[in-house]
Design a protein around this nucleic acid. Structure first.
Lengths: 324, 324
DNA sequence: CTCCCTTGTGCACGTTTGTGCATAGTGCTT
DNA sequence: AAGCACTATGCACAAACGTGCACAAGGGAG
C-alpha cells in the first residue's frame, strides 16, 4: 500500500480511537471527505494498526471459564454463541473470535505450527493482519490422501496465515498418513523433511483443532478418504476418541500402541507438549469426546471453544478425566 | 457494579468486537433492547474490558517519530493535532491520547509516580479504567504553596489515577518548596516522609509533564505563588530552562548547583532516571525549551507530545543538544 | 402498607457511520 | 501522445448507533 496512505490511516486511527473525534471532524482535519476517513479506518483495522482486545478478568468467579481453567489448567476463552444456531454459524463465530484472540499472541520471530481441517480453515479466513518480522508458519502434518495431494486445501490455510502475519510459509508436502510405516521412517531421514521437523521442534506456538471419532459431521480425517476400512476398524477397536493433527489418542490421553500413529505425519504428542503455547480451537458439542481426550493428554495451553461445548465440558466435571 | 451486568457486558463486547455482530443482533441474542446493548458496550469500554491500542510500526521511516526516537533515544508518540487549534484544545487531545497510551503500560504490582500540573490534571481526566491488583500511585512532589496547601488540586489528580487503576493512593503532604533547606533535611528524616521516599525509590513507572520558564502561559510553578521574586530572579540568572516535578535543570540537562532544588520536594534527577519507565507528556510549543532540557537530562523513556511541538523539536535538530 | 428514591429499560429521534456507484486521477503500454 | 486499466475519491442513501426522556421495577424509610 501507498506509504503515505498508511500514515494517513495511522493519523486517522489515533484521532478516532484515542481522541474520540468523529469521522467528520477527522475529515476536516485531514482535508478529505468523511467517506475516505471511514475507509482509512477500515484499512487501519484491516492492516493491524488498530488492536482491539477483550481482557476478561481472570477472577471471573465460578463461571464456565474459571471452572475449566481450574480443572484442566488451560487458559480458556468461551465464545458466546446461542446454542440454537446451526453448526456452520457457530463455527464461523468461534473461528472469528479465535482469529482475533490469536492475534495478540503472535509476535516477531515466532515459529507457528498450524494444523489443517475445517476448524483451522475457518479460523484462517478471519485472521486479522499483524506485521511481524522473521516469523515462520510451519505445517504440522501432511495433507495428502488417496485421492488428492490435499495441497490446495491445506496450503490455502497456510497461505492465509502467512499473509496475515507477513510470515514465511513452510509446507509439509507429504500425505497425512503413509501406507507403510517404513516409508515414513525413510522419508523422515530425507533432509527436505528434516528441515520441516527441525522447524517443528522449535515451534513457539501451535494452533490446532481436534478431531473426534463420533462427531456428527466427522472431521476430514475420518471421512475424507484418508483412512481405509481397516484403519477405521482399528481405531474403533482401540478406544481412540480423537486426534490432533492426525495423531490419535484415547480418552485418558494416552497414545501408546496406537499403530496408526506410526504412519501418521503429525508431531508425536510428547513433542507437541514441548511447545510453549498450544492453542486449541473447538466448535461444536459433537467434538466433546475428542476434546476431553486432548485435554487429558495435556495437549493445549489455551482453549477457545463455543459456549455450548464449554458447558458440556463442565457437566462431565464430576467424572475423573480418565473415564472418557 | 452488578456482577451479572458485568458478565453481560463481557459477552456483548466479545460479540461486538470479536465477532463483528451488530448491536441489533446482539440485542436479540441477549433478549434485550439495542439501546441496552449500546450501554453495555459503553460500560465495557469504560471499565477497561475492551482495550484498544494503536501500534505504530517502529519502522516508521524518516518521519517525526523516527527522527526523535533516534536522536533522543526515547519512545515517541506524536499526537496528530491541527496546529491551528488553541492551546486548551490541543492539551485536551494530547491528554486524552496520553491517557489511553499509558493504559496498556500500567500493570499489576506497579508503583506509579505521578507529578501534578495542568498537563497531568488534563491527563487524569481522561484515564480509562483498568483493573490491576496491588498497584500504588505515589505523588512525586509536594503541592503546597504560600497560599494553599495545594491539596485539593494535586489530590484530585492522584485520586483519579487511583480509581482508574484500582490502586492505593499515597499523597505527599508537603509544600512544593520548603522555605529553608534545613526544614527539608529535617522532614526527610521523618518516618512518614521516608515511607513516601521509599515508595518513590521503588517506582516502576513515573508520569510527568515539564515546566518551561518561558512558556506563554507558564506552568503553575512559575506563576502560582510557589516562588517569590527572589527565587524567580535566581532561576533567571542560572540558565534554568525548565523543571520536572519542581526540580529544575538547565538547557544541557545539568542541575548541579541550582540551589532552589535543595528546597524542592521532587525527586532528584539522578533518582528519577532510575525508574524503568518514565513517561513525559508535553503539549504546546511554548514548552519546547523545557522539553529539550528534560531530554538532554535523559529524564524520559517515553515521550507523548503534540505534532507541532514534535516538529519544532526536530527543526532544532542540527544544533547539539547542549546549546539549548 | 405506602411513599419516595434509585436504578435500569425501551422508545424515538437525531447523529454518525458504511457502501454502491459514478467520476476523476494516475501510471503503464503501445 | 493516446489509450487503457486500475485505484482512489466524493456523493447520496441506507444502516447502525448514541442518548434524552418517560416509565417501570425494586428496595428502604417512615
Amino acid at each position: 500500500m501507498d506509504p503515505s496512505r498508511h500514515s494517513e490511516a495511522l493519523r486517522a486511527a489515533q484521532m478516532y480511537y484515542l481522541q474520540d473525534l468523529t469521522m467528520d471532524a477527522i475529515a476536516r482535519e485531514l482535508r478529505t471527505s468523511r467517506s475516505t476517513v471511514s475507509r482509512l479506518l477500515s484499512s487501519a483495522r484491516e492492516s493491524g494498526l488498530v488492536q482491539i482486545q477483550i481482557r476478561n478478568p481472570l477472577d471471573t468467579g465460578p463461571e464456565l471459564e474459571g471452572r475449566i481453567r481450574q480443572r484442566y489448567g488451560v487458559d480458556v476463552h468461551v465464545v458466546p454463541v446461542l446454542e440454537t444456531l446451526n453448526d456452520a454459524e457457530t463455527l464461523d463465530r468461534v473461528a472469528m473470535q479465535a482469529a482475533r484472540t490469536i492475534g495478540p499472541v503472535v509476535d516477531s520471530n515466532a515459529i507457528i505450527g498450524v494444523a489443517w481441517g475445517s476448524t483451522l480453515s475457518a479460523v484462517s479466513r478471519h485472521l486479522t493482519r499483524k506485521i511481524t518480522h522473521d516469523s515462520v508458519i510451519v505445517q504440522l502434518n501432511g495433507a495428502g490422501n488417496m485421492h488428492t495431494t490435499g495441497i490446495t486445501y491445506a496450503s490455502d490455510i497456510m497461505r492465509r496465515f502467512g499473509s496475515a502475519y507477513g510470515a514465511r510459509v513452510e509446507q509439509f508436502p507429504v500425505p497425512a498418513f503413509f501406507d507403510h510405516a517404513a516409508t515414513k521412517t525413510a522419508m523422515w531421514n530425507e533432509r527436505s523433511v528434516q528441515r520441516i521437523l527441525e522447524l517443528q521442534a522449535k515451534m513457539s506456538i501451535a494452533i490446532f483443532g481436534v478431531g473426534s471419532v463420533d462427531a456428527d459431521y466427522p472431521s476430514h480425517v475420518y471421512a475424507g478418504g484418508y483412512l481405509d476400512e481397516m484403519d477405521l476398524n482399528i481405531l474403533a477397536t482401540s478406544d481412540v476418541v480423537g486426534d490432533v493433527a492426525t495423531v490419535f489418542f484415547r480418552g485418558d490421553g494416552s497414545s501408546d500402541g496406537i499403530i496408526l500413529n506410526e504412519r501418521s505425519t503429525g508431531p508425536a504428542l510428547a513433542e507437541l507438549r514441548q511447545v510453549r503455547r498450544r492453542i486449541c480451537v473447538v466448535s461444536g458439542v459433537s467434538k466433546i469426546k475428542g476434546l476431553r481426550g486432548a485435554l487429558a493428554a495435556g495437549l493445549a495451553t489455551d482453549l477457545i471453544l463455543d459456549e455450548a461445548t464449554a458447558r458440556r465440558l463442565v457437566d462431565y466435571e464430576g467424572l475423573p478425566a480418565a473415564n472418557g
